[in-house]
Design a protein around this nucleic acid. Structure first.
Lengths: 224, 224
DNA sequence: CATAGATTCACCATAATTGGTGATTGATAC
DNA sequence: GTATCAATCACCAATTATGGTGAATCTATG
C-alpha cells in the first residue's frame, strides 16, 4: 500500500465503546503499515485531539455522547478540509449514511466488516477513495436505471457554448431579463437562445428544460 | 455467504481473453460455494448462452469483439431484468463505468482486484449489492459536498401533500393549466398552491422551484 | 368551540414567457 | 467564395405565470 515517506499510517479513533476501541487497537497493532496514535471515547476536545495526534485517517463512530459523529465531522471539516474521515457504525441507517456523507465523511463502513476489509478500507480512504457498502452503492444505481429512459441515452444535445451559458442561468432560476444582464446581451438575444435550446432539448418550458438538464447533468457529473 | 438452497452460486463469464477466463475458472474451482458453469469468448449467442447456463451471476468483460460488454448488458436486460451482472475491466475508464451502469450493470470492478475481493464482490452483487471501486464512489461524494451549501441543510419545507403533488408536476415541466387538469382542480387552485409553494421554498419562479426540488430530492433519494 | 391549516376557488393587474419571422455579423468548413 | 452555423438583435402576438386580496369548506388540535 502507498505510505507517506515509508512511515506507517497514523490512525485515530473516536468511539465510546471500549471493546471497539480495543479490538481496533489490537487489529492495528498487528498491521505493519498502520499505527493507532490515539483513541478517544468522545469528541470533547476533537479539534485539539486531532491537532495533537496529526492522524492520516480518522475513524469516527456515529452514536457518541456529548457530540455525535456526524456533528463531529462537520466540526472537523471547519479546520481540516481534506483529512480522510471514515465513519464506523454498527448498523446501516440510511438517514445517517446520508447525513454523514453530507457532513463531509469520506467513507462509511460497518463495524462488523471483517478484519481484512477494515484494513483495506482504511487504505482506500487514505488514498482518495470512498469506501461504502455495496448496499448504499446499489441505491445509486437503482436511481440510475429509473431515470434512464428519459435522460441517459446521453443524447448529445449539441448545445453551443452560449446556449449552455444561458441554460445554466435558466437552471438557477434566473429570468430572461436577468440572464440578459448577466451575460451582457439583449433580452431578445436571450429569447433567441432559449428558443434554440428548447428546440434542441425537445421541450417547451423552463420547467422541462431545467428538469431535463439537472437530472441529466447531476447523474453525469457523478461518473464522468 | 447466502446461497440458493445450499447450491453453489452459478457463475458465467464472457471475456475474450483466454488467460482471464482460465484464471477465473481456477479461482472459482477452489471456491466452495461457487461454480463456473460456462465461459465464452464473445457474446454471439448471449441470450441463448445465458438461458442454457442459468447463472446466478454474470461476469462481463467490456472490450470484446462482435458485441462489446456494454451493449451486451443492454441486450441482456431486455430478457433478464434482475440477473446480477458485474462488469470486469482492465482499467478504470469513467466513460465506460458510466455507460455500463446506465446500461444496467450491477457492479463494476477491476480485473486486477485481488482474489479475495473478487469472490467477495461476486457474493455482494448476488445478494443485492453494487460493488464499485472507491474511486468511483468518491466522485459521488464530491458531488455531494459541492451541492451541499445550497440544498442539503435538508430544510423541511413542510409542504402539504397537495402542494407536493403540484410541485411534482411542476418539476415535470407541466403548466398551470395542465396541472389543474391532471389533478382535477381549477387553474386558480393550482395558482394558489404554487403561491404557497414558492413562499415555503423561498423562490419565485418555476425555474428556481424545480431546481431546488430536483437537486435536493435527487440526492436525497439516492440515500434515503 | 375556537383557532389553525389544508384545500378549494375567484377576480384583477402586471410581468414574463413562448413562438413566429426576419436580419446582421463573423467565423469555419468545403 | 459560398454555405453553414453561432451569436447577436428586433418586432409582434398570444399565452402563461406571478402577486395581491379575499373567501368558503373541512379537518384536526387544543
Amino acid at each position: 500500500m502507498t505510505l507517506k515517506n515509508n512511515q506507517p499510517l497514523r490512525i485515530i479513533i473516536f468511539d465510546d465503546n471500549n471493546n471497539v476501541r480495543d479490538s481496533i487497537a489490537l487489529l492495528l497493532s498487528t498491521t505493519d503499515n498502520m499505527q493507532l496514535v490515539a483513541s478517544f471515547e468522545n469528541c470533547k476536545n476533537l479539534i485539539a485531539d486531532v491537532e495533537n495526534a496529526r492522524p492520516d485517517v480518522v475513524l469516527m463512530d456515529i452514536d457518541m455522547p456529548l457530540l455525535n459523529g456526524i456533528d463531529a465531522v462537520k466540526l472537523l471539516r471547519t479546520k481540516f478540509t481534506d483529512l480522510p474521515v471514515m465513519m464506523l457504525t454498527g448498523f446501516e441507517d440510511d438517514e445517517k449514511v446520508f447525513a454523514s456523507l453530507c457532513a463531509g465523511a469520506n467513507g462509511y463502513i460497518l463495524k462488523n466488516s471483517n478484519i481484512d476489509s477494515l484494513i483495506q478500507y482504511i487504505n482506500e480512504v487514505y488514498s482518495g477513495g470512498a469506501p461504502m457498502t455495496p448496499v448504499i452503492a446499489r441505491k445509486v444505481l437503482n436511481q440510475f436505471t429509473k431515470l434512464q429512459p428519459a435522460q441517459l441515452k446521453n443524447e448529445e444535445y449539441n448545445l453551443s457554448n452560449r446556449e449552455k451559458d444561458v441554460l445554466q442561468l435558466l437552471v438557477k432560476g434566473k429570468s430572461y431579463k436577468i440572464i440578459a444582464d448577466e451575460l451582457n446581451i439583449s433580452y431578445e438575444t436571450v429569447h433567441s437562445h432559449i428558443r434554440k435550446i428548447y428546440q434542441k432539448l425537445h421541450v417547451n418550458s423552463v420547467g422541462e428544460a431545467v428538469s431535463k438538464t439537472i437530472s441529466g447533468n447531476l447523474l453525469r457529473t457523478f461518473f464522468i
